[in-house]
Structures are given as C-alpha cells and as structure tokens.
Nucleic acid binder design. Sequence first.
RNA 1: GCCGGAGUAGCUCAGUUGGUGAGAGCGGGCGUUUCAUACGCGCUAGGUCGGGGGUUCAACUCCCUCCUCCGGCACCA
Length: 679
Amino acid sequence: MPGEAQAKRVYITTPIYYVNDVPHLGNGYTTIIGDALRRYHQLRGHDVRLLVGTDEHGLKLEREAQEQGLTPQAFVDQMSVRFREAWPKLLVEPDDFIRTTEARHESLVRDIWQRVAANGDLKKGHYEDWYCVGCESFKTEKELLEGNICALHKKPVERLKEETYFFALDQYQDKLLDLYAKSPSFVEPDSRRNEVLSFVSSGLKPLSVSRTSFSWGIPVPSDPKHVMYVWFDALSNYWTALGGWDSELTKRFWPSDPHALPTKSDDPMVIHLVGKDILRFHAVFWPAFLMSAQMPLPSKVYAHGFLTVDGQKMSKSLRNAVDPLRLARELPGGASTLRYHLLRAISFGQDGDFDHAALLERYNADLGKNLGNLLSRVLGLCVKNTGNTAPAFEQAKRTDLDNAFLKDVQLSLAAAREHWDAIEPHRALEATWAASSRANLYVDQAAPWAEAKKGDLARVETILTTLVKVLEHLSAFIAPALPDKANEMRAQLGLQPLAPALNRDLLAIDFSDAPARPLGTATPLFPTLDAAGVAALLDSLVPKAEPAMNESTQPEKPPAAALPSGAPLSEPIAYDQFAATDLRIGIVLEAEKVPKKDKLLKLKVDVGEASPRQIVAGLALSFAPEGLVGKRVIVVANLAPRDFGKGLVSHGMLLAAGESNSLSLATVSDDVAPGTKVK
RNA sequence: GCCGGAGUAGCUCAGUUGGUGAGAGCGGGCGUUUCAUACGCGCUAGGUCGGGGGUUCAACUCCCUCCUCCGGCACCA
C-alpha cells in the first residue's frame, strides 16, 4: 500500500525446543500463545512474524544418536519433524522454522562468535566441574542435589575438565543492570524481573561457552576442536533466522541501533516468549552476548509460568499423558477449544492449572452457550423474520437501547485489544466474551420475537442487524484464539474468511451504516456436551492416577543405572590417602527435618562413642526422618566439623549413593556394631 | 536463612493515589422468558478481605509483627 505509514512491526519467538523432547502441553502452550499473538497482530494489520524451531546440538543428542545407531544429523532430522508437524495441528502457523543444524544458522553464529571475540570477551581457559548432560552445562556443586544429581534433570552429573573459552559475562553486569533499569519492561512479568535483577546484582562470573569433549555442535572459528556451548548456539537462532546482517528480514524485524534501548518506538518489537525455567539464559546471557557483539537487543523477554495438570505437577509420565495433539483431535471444537482454554483459563505469566473438567465446563459455558448459542438464536431469528438477511445497518433507526448496547460492546472490544497488546490473552478473551454476554442480554431486552408479534418488522430488522453487526465483530475478535471457528462463524454470518493485510485493521470497531446483505447457513458452532458426554470425555482424556504412591512422596525415579560409562574417573590416589578417611558404622538414633532448609536432616548417630554425634546431611528430599531411625549407616567420622549457622554443627557425614530424590544410604547388615571401622 | 510474590465468596480471580453499604466470572440454589445448542435473563454468596498489633476521622488498600503458600538464591565436605 504505497504512501501509507509503515505498519507496526512485531517479531515473536518461542523457544526452540530441544529435539530430544516431544511436543507436549508445556511447549504447546508457549507455542499457542505465540501464534495467538501473531494472529492478533496480523489482524491489526501489523507486520508480524512468528519464529519457532528446534535446538539440535549437544552431547545428549550425540549420545542418543549413537545409541540408536544413527548419525547425529539423521537422528535430529527425524526428531525435528515431530515438532514441525505438530504445530499446524494446533493451528499454529509459524512464518519460519529454524533448526540449529541448518547452514544458514551456523554460519551466522560463527559471525557472532567472531564479533564477540573481536570485542575481547572470549578467553581460553580451563574448566573443571560437574557437567549435566541434560542441561548441556556445567554445574557448580552448589547447584547439585545430594549425590551429585542435577536438580533439573534428576540425573547424575559427570566430572569434566576441559579447555574452554570463557565469555566475559562479568564485564556486562553493570550494562545489564542499566538495561533493566532503563527498560523496565525488558523482562516480564515483574516478579521474574526481580529475580533476574537479584541474580545479576549478586555478581556474574565468566561463562564457559565452548566444549572440547564432544563434537556435535558448531565449531569455534579458528579453533575447531572446540564446539560452541549450546546456549550460545541456540539463543542466536532468534537473530540468525532472519537471515543475518543485511537481509531484508533483519531490517524489517530486528532493531537497527545497537546503542538504543529496545523500546524505541519506531523499531520493531522483538518479543521472546519463554518458560520461566529458561528465563536466565534469555534475560541475561543473550543480551550480554548481543552487547558484546555490538548488536541491537530484543525488546522483551516474557517468561510464563508452568502448568499443572488437574492440580498435579506435570511429571514426566503426566507430561506424556497429556498430549496436546490428542486433545486437539478429540475435543469438541478441536484445537481451537484447547487454544481457547489455555489462553483464557491461565493468567499469562503466572503458573496455572490445566484442569480437564474446567476445560469442558468452559467449552460448554463460554463457547457453546454464551457465544455458540447466541449465534444460533440470532441467525434463527433472521431466518424467521428477515429472509435470512442482515437488514441495512443504519444509525438513524437505532433506539437508546440499541445504542447503549453498541456502546458497551465498543468498550469491551476496545479493552480486548488493549489486553492483547499488553500480552494478556486471558483478559483479552474475558473482555471479548463480555461483549458476547452483553449481546445475550440485549437479545432479551430488545425481545425481537415480541416485536414481531406486534407486527413491527422495521424494529425487528433494526434489532437483528444490530446483533449481526456485533457478531461480525466477535467473529474477528475470537480469531487469535479460535482461528478456524472464527471463519466458520463468519461463513454462517455470510462473510468471507478473515483476510489480513498490512495496514488494514480487521479489529477496528466499525458501527457505520451498512447496506443489507445475505446471511449464511446456521449450524451449531460448538455443540454443547451433556453430562454423559462430559463424563465420557473426562474418562477418556484424563490420565489415570498413578498406580503407585503419589508424586509428591515418590518423585519420578530415573533408572537405577549409575553414571554413564563415559564419566571419567577421578585421579588415582595412594592407599594412605584413602586410609586417612576414618569410616565408621553408625546407628541413627534420631532424625528430624531442619526448618527452612529444604534438603537438610539433623541426625543423632551412635558411632560407638560415649555420646551420639550430631550429623547434618542433605537427605531430606529422599527420606522421611522417621524412616531413618534405627538404620545402620556409614559415617565419615574424622571429618572436620561443619557449621551451618545458628549453632547447627555437623560432626561427620554419611555415605549415600543414587538419585536425588531416591538416595540410597550406604549400609551394612544388622549385626555390625556401631563404631566398627569400615575399610 | 536471604530476596521477591501471594494469601479477598465453593472454584478462578478484580479491587485504581486509603473514604459512600467489599466486586466479577464459573459452579450451586431460587425464579422467569421462549428467539436459540434444555439455551437466555433476573435474583441469590450473610466472605472476620490469612492472624495480631499500629497510624488515621476513616484501611482490603499505609506501617510493624506472626502464620501459610509459591518462586529465586542459599543450604548436603
């Protein structure tokens, strides 16, 4: 459209999902939000782009491929397809799908790396620490659970020592704080912003950004025995997917000024949607990388919460049991119903509960009764009274009742737009449905059937055309959440499908006069479910309760297998060094939880001495205190006392092995006396 | 333990700079209309606004304190 102002530009990204995972409700949720926002902006006539993709590098995938006898590339190829094919089934239509193994990505990541290096922010050094294959990252000991278990993946970490490049993250502490201060909406919601703030304020350390211990990654330019740390690689996708330095898309969708704040109004809005678990990478590392490379920053990192399912934590098993694709197939109203519920029921940004019963209630109440039935009754009235046409819509014919109705609708829909702009889908939909409720009220107030009985056809026509006009608007306003249903609704209203175009606002509220026009054929848009139908669906869709104990007391148990075979052994030691450790058999006499310390138990242990010792151990996630009493344990008896503050001192430690939440205490048979030496 | 957030009707939550009798949606109960997908509309919640103190003419809204929940950090040598 020549001559028109440039459309507002919006670039929305979801995380690229690690291909070892599958599309599940959690990442489906993020992706649906992204698509709903994309559709909203598209309807407003904005220049919008949605990027999704897959993260395909790392040790974990290299090993997985090996186990399956595939090359890494072949393995990730087959895995990536699952995501690519999943999203359209949720009515998600991304503009691009980036894979970190694509050449277009790799070459540009190398460019970024070189700019960061040129800026003097990459230094070679050595790193030795625990490494979690699941996270693709080193863990400080403080981040690990009892028994060197990764807190996120509940799997044992490995001891790795290797040459690595360090990124000078510490040099960016002040600049990041400055960014958060000057651009308060860079991280949202506020509670997450505070967390980021406190993390950065507490001090940043250089960040290890390369590996030499595996090869499935992007080689470091000029030092190809290193591959890039997976986050350096992965985060860059948001930018590389646009095509790089001088590409058309980069100019359109990435801000141009590396020194400007990301809120400059004439720049494109770059919105990263992320789960709260990966906020730090996006809100700290990513802008620091970009600053170092002297590249412009995104506008906003929005971290949403986690979902529980029917009030329960989404464990691995549940996560697999709640399959969004299956819901999209089996729910009445299909993917749109799922989308609507996710967008409407969960306050975006907060943790939320995905409740199957609430979903069906909402389907019946909001979709079936409130909106679906409204459409049905209005169209039915039109068939009976106006020859299935929408009569001319004319201001002059309207009464106060009609105008009050339109005024309220106008207010609600305007509010809905504002809420979409503010990334508050739940509020936007609430406001949209307020307009629908208002229309139901108006039908009753205006009572066109009564006017028809009186023979006042002109009045009937005015009422019905007013309703049809509002339904037209509703059909567009529901489209971000319920794209297919929006167009079905429009077909019934005798309208063409929504056809977004740049600078054309399809969510404009237009109550200007319009001529009469024919309507389409009415058919229930959202057939309501009766009680039996609800029960049957619930029975089929709700994951069956775990047969064993409930989740909270018995967290998911990784396989009993210990460290992966690749774990390097520690350096050999002489016998004397071992002998210096005085291991004794002890019997637990008392055990209690240490208040305010998640993981600590305070024990009284008889190690054959005059009086029992107090030992503080990080066992609380695995053992109920009372379950330990009477157990024989192996105690490191000559360990220096350790003070936990407030007079809580530990005299020794216990040997334990296994998984974080299901630790196994090293023990001996019952006939060994306390104090017996172990060697 | 430190930092942050939150505790308001059965459920999910709104409640602006402190001020007329504390709200919405859903569910439940009662009533009612008949155009409609047994759908709509109206009425109905006797809630100590987590507990306790305080400031004030006046506090859900400010201060202190305690409790609980949720995050983040810390805590297992």
